[in-house]
């Protein structure tokens, strides 16, 4: 299963990004192959609908769950209808490596 994590940078010791649509990077982790991919978010600086476009981008890549600091009110229904699970981590100091470790352990 593919999991997307919002990140502030493209290194494994970067922190989780508190916003979803305008986060700097998406980390896509595939639990079957164990591959980790960092993709820069193309919608960081767009005027509007960054969230909806990010949802499209991630669902096109087959992501089944998304980990972020928070999700906006328009994103929640969109993800619900796509049956993508949302995981909210309120702790903004969490590193990507820590989250990946948890996911790998829970495989």
């Amino acid at each position: 299963m593919r999991t997307a994590i919002t990140a502030t940078g493209n290194k494994s010791d970067s922190l989780i990004d508190t916003k979803f649509g305008r986060c700097s990077f998406f980390v896509i982790y595939d639990s079957e192959t164990g591959s980790v991919e960092y993709i820069p978010n193309p919608f960081v600086d767009v005027e509007e609908s960054a969230g909806a476009d990010s949802v499209k981008l991630l669902s096109a890549r087959g992501v089944k769950q998304i980990i972020a600091g928070d999700f906006g009110s328009k994103i929640k229904p969109a993800l619900d209808s796509l049956k993508i699970r949302m995981i909210v981590i309120k702790d903004a100091g969490k590193k990507i490596s820590e989250i990946l470790e948890l996911l790998e352990k829970n495989k």
Partner: peptide, 10 residues
């Protein structure tokens, strides 16, 4: 245990 919130789409 990890303090995260999540939903259940199914």
């Amino acid at each position: 245990s990890c303090g995260s919130f999540f939903n259940n789409p199914e």
